[in-house]
Design a protein around this nucleic acid. Structure first.
Lengths: 132, 132
DNA sequence: CCTTGACCTTCCAGTGACTGGAAAGTGTAG
DNA sequence: CTACACTTTCCAGTCACTGGAAGGTCAAGG
């Protein structure tokens, strides 16, 4: 199947699929006319990539995951370790983002938001106390 | 004061301060020897930038915020609108990240993580059911 | 006075993960 | 036959820095 179809079925834009090939993440066969040719298995690998990226794994982590995916002898412990590290990272990001949210919300709540120039948001961003 | 001192006091690396000057976000005076020269007010603006960026505002948003910061006649409503839009965006990101976390945690919890090759994480990443 | 080393300058290149667009070839439907 | 969608490659741009090279400046120690 052509790249357009593989794109639809995997949820990855054609540009991204070509990019993944460029960086050696996913190579496809070629038809006689020079067009890339994708098998159903290829589409599975693309979906795998689409999901992993969507779950926050970096391209390099996807490369690892993909090689484990291909390795039928791999140990599940290896996969679990990678996933757990990523989970911890997501938790860190969540906490950080929640902190930002609170600071910003505090600022917004205390701003009267009218035509006057006084603004606690500005004060909060420029002051020396607390914040992020 | 030199860029190194301004860097320490603002929390921004010298490279970043020069970069901000490059993109016209923050220009500094020059001493006779050609070194950049920062005033206390400059350091305040740098801190403002450091905080705003840390709170997730893009450089372009910081540019807006900074011009409002400089405009003593600005209306707080304007600032509030920008901050509220950013808050909504952070909430979206938080929800998305929480979703990822749940999916990944589910996967990790169901993986026995031993020497066997069977792995629910891999299945979850490659399968067609569910996931973010 | 000279050297050392920390600091400063500019400029160019690279990061991650794409995305956009140009120019040209291919396939298909009317 | 023509239009148009799809494909190819390649080059450039995005965002917000960051690294490094090559060279100028400055204060302290010998």
């Amino acid at each position: 199947m052509n790249i357009g179809t593989a794109s639809e079925r995997s949820g990855l834009p054609p540009k991204t699929i070509r990019y993944y090939e460029d960086i050696g993440l996913m190579k496809a066969g070629r038809a006689e006319n020079g067009y890339r040719d994708y098998s159903t298995e290829d589409v599975h690998r693309l979906r795998f990539l689409q999901r992993s990226r969507g779950l926050g794994f970096s391209v390099e982590e996807c490369r690892q995951l993909l090689s484990l995916y291909d390795d039928k002898e791999r140990e599940s412990a290896e996969v679990k370790a990678i996933a757990e590290a990523k989970l911890a990272e997501i938790d860190r990001k969540l906490a950080e983002l929640a902190g930002l949210r609170d600071t910003l919300q505090h600022l917004v709540r205390h701003c009267h938001g009218d035509e006057r120039p006084e603004c606690p948001i500005m004060d909060g961003l420029s002051g020396d106390h607390a914040a992020a």
